[in-house]
């Protein structure tokens, strides 16, 4: 399967908290294609950052495996490991924390490349190139992070991430810490990089509007699981999981007319403690569709149509409703097909 760039198979990551076990990731199956950007949305504690960090190899999975370009990443050593490091990179949420305050931007880039075995001369030539690619200039190289603005710092972090010509990038909330006007600049930069370099990307965000602008496919996470996975048109037009529906309805629109005429679904309660998830479907205490079965049986991720999967006992009804012209469409998209439910491979 050469179309898959990176694949998570039954990925789990557990943390021990005293006597309890926090299942930050609890069985995630996911594949991202070459030059594809997959959006990953979810609230704090959903495990989306853990998934991103596990995919780039910053943390080992507790169970399951990560396959990159057809090979198992576990136990890779020597040249293979170096290749894996070169090809998978991470852009962090907070650019201030992601750059060493005592190193100039140039030194940070140089160190990053030298560690990966680049020759001094090659590094010298490379640094101005990647700074330019990230929208900075060679004049930024001798600057310390505190001398740059937030947006410039995030550009420097992006420059470091693309300096080794990776083919897979995890962007973990790359614009959440930035101001509105800077945010647009960084979104445009990431989009142009993804377009020009054919980068595969996992774009993690809690902001669905940003995801809509960055990603062709979107996965929704809730308490360590993927609860819905669909092309963005289908997800936004005909969401199947009630959590996705609520999430979409909670996003404020910068438009007073639409914002005030919307029919809001306001979720009850708070996201539960990930170390103590409810039995059955993890979403059921907050779900307006919850029925008896939801409190007992944990629904698996099922396929409704070739591209749209959801983990909900009632997703079939939802799919039927939307096929019949159901909820308001935000944007014309691929209609979700009814039935055809099959287990995830």
């Amino acid at each position: 399967m050469s179309t898959k760039l990176i694949e998570a198979i039954g990925l789990a990551r557990h943390y021990r908290l005293g006597t309890r076990v926090l299942r930050a990731l609890d069985g995630v199956d996911l594949a991202i294609g070459r030059a594809e950007t997959l959006g990953l949305v979810g609230e704090s504690g959903s495990g989306k950052s853990t998934l991103g960090r596990t995919l780039v190899g910053l943390q080992p999975p507790s169970r399951g495996s990560v396959r990159f370009d057809g090979m198992d990443t576990k136990g890779a050593t020597g040249a293979v490991l170096r290749q894996l490091r070169r090809r998978r990179q991470l852009v962090f949420q907070d650019p201030s924390g992601a750059l060493n305050p005592r190193m100039t931007i140039g030194a940070t880039l140089t160190e990053h490349l030298r560690v990966q075995g680049w020759e001094r001369a090659a590094v010298r030539a490379r640094v101005p190139q990647v700074l330019a690619a990230a929208g900075l200039s060679a004049a930024h190289a001798p600057r310390y992070p505190h001398e740059l603005s937030g947006g410039q710092r995030q550009r420097a972090v992006i420059a470091r991430a693309i300096s080794t010509d990776p083919d897979f990038l995890v962007a973990d909330e790359p614009v959440s810490a930035l101001d509105v006007s800077t945010r647009a600049q960084i979104i445009n930069l990431l989009r142009s990089l993804q377009r020009d370099r054919g980068l595969g990307m996992l774009f993690i965000s809690h902001d669905l509007s940003v995801v809509a602008h960055m990603c062709s496919r979107v996965a929704v996470m809730y308490l360590g699981r993927i609860v819905e996975l669909a092309p963005r048109e289908a997800l936004f037009a005909a969401p199947l999981h009630p959590y996705t529906v609520a999430l979409l309805s909670a996003v404020p629109l910068p438009d007073p007319v639409r914002e005030r005429s919307r029919n809001r679904i306001i979720l009850r309660g708070e996201p539960p403690d990930p170390a103590d998830p409810p039995p059955g479907c993890r979403f059921h205490p907050r779900c307006r569709l919850a029925s008896a079965i939801c409190t007992r049986v944990d629904p698996p991720l099922r396929w409704f149509g070739p591209h749209h999967a959801a983990a909900c006992h009632h997703a079939g009804e939802q799919a039927a409703a939307s096929a019949a012209g159901g909820p308001v469409r935000i944007n014309a998209g691929r209609p979700a097909e009814e039935g055809g439910a099959g287990q995830m491979r």
């Binding site: 647009a184 509007s209 935000i330 944007n331």
Partner: peptide, 20 residues
């Protein structure tokens, strides 16, 4: 500059150059 959930997904976002 604000990305919107309800429109213009594939458009380049207009930007304000520079930063505060």
């Amino acid at each position: 500059a604000v990305p919107r959930l309800d429109q213009g997904w594939d458009d380049e976002l207009p930007i304000i150059p520079g930063s505060v």
